Simulated assay, not measured.
Amino acid sequence: MTARFDHGAWAETGVETVHPGVHRVPLPLPQDGLHAVNVYVLEGMAEDGGLVMIDGGWAVPEARKTLEAALAGLGYDLSAVRDVFVTHAHRDHYTQAVELRRAFGARVHLGAGERRGLELLNDMRGGIGSALRTLRQAGAQELAARVRLTYPDLYDPGHWEEPDRWLGAETLRFGEHALRVIPTPGHTRGHVVFLDARRGLLFSGDHVLPRITPSIGFEAADPGGRPLASYLESLRLMTDHADTRLLPAHGPVGPSTHTRVAELVAHHGERLARTLAVLGDDTRDAFTVACALPWTRRALDFTELNPLNQMLAVNETVAHLDVLALRGKVAVSRVEGVDRYTRMR
């Protein structure tokens, strides 16, 4: 059964048992280039024989039907889900957890650092407001206007409600099993991962992904500080623990968290160097730098990206330039609301 779940077929509908009692279920994502999000179904954790889930999926009918069929194949129905532990509040992870609570009484748990972002979404003032502000400060005002026209329909504030419990850095115990909650800010300020040290498993959400690098600081709330610096420190934190199998939210299960962490750190090191080289001896805004950088593993030109991915590219460029500033490699000045970067001599 697991032969289908290789690098090319991880998003196909089905159930992959990655460890006795631990099952990966890819759920479809509409209008999303990632194709699917992995949720993990854990047996033997709830006292009454119910199920625990890591992440909930996106609240769309296709995802609910897929989850229902997967649970039926394991001998359960949706009402068996007792708790959903969510890595972060993005729609493809959080909104179906809320639906499971509404329909069946499942409890929802979320990292405490997501509180501000969730408040903004609940108040209908969230969405991508922080990302649009970053675009304007990056000198990409025209792109910000284009994104604003096309993006709002992707958000329904009614899908976001407060969790039953806010999680800190703690250990959750389930009889002989335990999940250690590790805050990993970067992708969002409140992202957490769940470490099952006894079974050698890391439920990594979007923090450590096997094939792509996550967007940095993409959330309703102002990510605060320098999100890439936080992300790099959160990656380093993974090596403070024994190596584990990597159970990501997008992509196939991987054999080594430490190996992938090293690859991600190296990638960002290379990206920082390339960003500095593109900046050169000129004073430039982040939008200008982003336009001169290659994007994705296929080294696409900036103009080949759609507006949403152009927004993510500019925001990532800002994150890298801010780390370079933190390291004393560039100086930053704000002129008429736009940040401009100059290489230090």
Score class of each variant (00 low, 15 high):
1 M>V: 12
2 T>F: 09
3 A>Q: 03
6 D>V: 13
7 H>Y: 08
7 H>D: 14
9 A>P: 03
11 A>Q: 09
12 E>N: 05
13 T>I: 06
13 T>Q: 06
17 T>E: 15
19 H>S: 14
23 H>P: 12
25 V>N: 02
27 L>T: 03
28 P>W: 06
33 G>S: 13
35 H>Q: 15
36 A>D: 01
37 V>T: 04
42 L>C: 14
43 E>C: 10
48 D>E: 01
48 D>S: 03
50 G>Q: 00
50 G>K: 02
52 V>G: 03
55 D>G: 11
57 G>W: 10
60 V>K: 11
65 K>D: 15
69 A>R: 11
72 A>G: 13
78 L>K: 11
82 R>Q: 13
83 D>T: 04
84 V>G: 12
85 F>L: 14
91 R>F: 12
98 V>Y: 07
100 L>G: 08
102 R>Q: 10
106 A>P: 02
108 V>T: 12
110 L>R: 01
113 G>S: 07
115 R>Q: 11
117 G>E: 02
117 G>P: 01
121 L>I: 07
125 R>E: 15
127 G>C: 00
129 G>W: 06
131 A>I: 00
139 G>R: 06
145 A>P: 00
151 Y>F: 07
156 D>I: 01
159 H>A: 12
159 H>T: 12
160 W>Y: 15
163 P>Q: 09
167 L>N: 08
174 F>Y: 15
174 F>I: 15
175 G>D: 08
177 H>G: 13
177 H>L: 04
179 L>S: 10
184 T>C: 02
185 P>W: 07
187 H>S: 11
189 R>W: 09
190 G>L: 01
192 V>F: 06
195 L>T: 13
196 D>L: 08
203 F>I: 11
204 S>D: 08
209 L>F: 02
210 P>V: 03
211 R>W: 10
212 I>P: 03
213 T>I: 14
214 P>Q: 09
216 I>L: 12
216 I>T: 11
217 G>P: 07
222 D>Y: 06
222 D>V: 12
224 G>R: 04
226 R>G: 13
231 Y>E: 13
231 Y>H: 12
236 R>H: 11
237 L>Y: 01
240 D>S: 09
243 D>C: 00
249 A>K: 03
259 T>S: 11
262 A>I: 01
265 V>C: 08
274 R>L: 05
282 D>L: 13
285 D>K: 05
285 D>R: 05
286 A>W: 06
287 F>H: 15
289 V>N: 05
290 A>S: 12
292 A>Y: 09
293 L>H: 02
293 L>G: 02
302 F>P: 05
302 F>E: 09
306 N>L: 10
308 L>C: 14
310 Q>D: 05
315 N>E: 15
316 E>D: 14
317 T>L: 01
317 T>F: 03
320 H>S: 08
322 D>E: 09
327 R>H: 08
327 R>M: 04
328 G>V: 00
336 E>R: 04
338 V>R: 01
340 R>C: 05
342 T>S: 10
342 T>Q: 03
345 R>Q: 08
